[in-house]
């Protein structure tokens, strides 16, 4: 369970305050969606939770199953079960996708005091999971995200998620830059990973992704706070009427 309480965040080298007392609870096994207009602080929330530099937490807490995330290094958060699917996955020239993935899997296992995965076992599992995401062997040999299409990059993020088996997955605008077919494929990948022990926080501008990844709860974020919470119907309301009405109502 992810619990965010009264989270206040500003930019490190700027006085600009982005999150202004955000409260959010994502229960284990649930899928929550966050929607909101540009500049509401959605991406900042995902970066702050995963530990990116450049932000300063001035107040509040964020715990995963009772463990405080905000004091940990990014790699410790990953080992604790947090995963961020990037809006813009990063290219790493010269590093094979397979190497990257295996290094990550074993780094996390090591951090948790588990045995590392052997090369044979890893290969078997990764092939299986890649197949269901329509990622071919050739793509696994290429350098991480280098020359990947938008769809390939996002599928690759989902493959990493599948291999790392996190407890809490944050999808930061995973639908951006995808055509309908690519989005469906990614959504199928995500749906296949849904289970009782895994929670999702799906950050998106548009309702269309939520047609494919059905959320349990939908939050509307504006000006650094969750301003409205409801069921899947809330997303449809945004789709039909835009944010203006909701914001006028709450602000």
């Amino acid at each position: 369970m992810l619990e965010i309480k009264n989270l206040h965040v500003k930019l490190e080298d700027d006085e600009k305050v982005i999150l202004k007392g955000l409260n959010l609870t994502v229960e284990t096994g649930k899928v929550h969606a966050i929607m909101g207009p540009n500049g509401s602080g959605k991406s900042t929330l995902s970066y702050v939770l995963s530990g990116r530099d450049g932000y300063e937490v001035t107040d509040g807490s964020a715990t995963l199953d009772g463990v405080e995330l905000l004091e940990m290094e990014p790699e410790e958060r990953a080992a604790a079960g947090l995963f961020l699917a990037f809006q813009y996955p990063v290219e790493i020239p010269g590093v094979g996708n397979m190497t990257f993935l295996r290094t990550a899997v074993n780094a996390q296992r090591k951090a948790r005091g588990e045995e590392e995965m052997s090369a044979g076992e890893f290969l078997k599992v990764v092939r299986e999971k890649a197949k269901s995401l329509k990622i071919d062997a050739e793509m696994m040999k290429r350098p991480v995200n280098v020359g990947f299409s938008g769809g390939e990059k996002k599928r690759n993020e989902i493959l990493q998620m599948a291999m790392l088996e996190p407890k809490m997955c944050i999808l930061d605008e995973t639908d951006s830059g995808l055509d309908v077919d690519a989005m469906k494929l990614v959504a199928e990948g995500v749906n296949a990973l849904r289970n009782e022990g895994r929670s999702f926080l799906v950050i998106t501008h548009y309702q269309r992704l939520l047609d494919h990844i059905k959320p349990d709860v939908v939050h509307i974020m504006a000006d650094g706070r969750i301003v409205k919470t409801g069921g899947p119907e809330l997303a449809l309301e945004v789709e039909n009427n835009g944010y203006a009405d909701i914001l006028a109502e709450v602000l």
Binding site: E75, A79, L84, F86, V90, E91, I92, A104
Partner: peptide
């Protein structure tokens, strides 16, 4: 690049080495 590697579980020096 370093943050991407670290968010996947590698520590900073491992990320640089990679």
């Amino acid at each position: 690049q370093l943050f991407y590697c670290r968010s996947r579980g590698m520590d900073e020096e491992e990320a640089v080495a990679l």
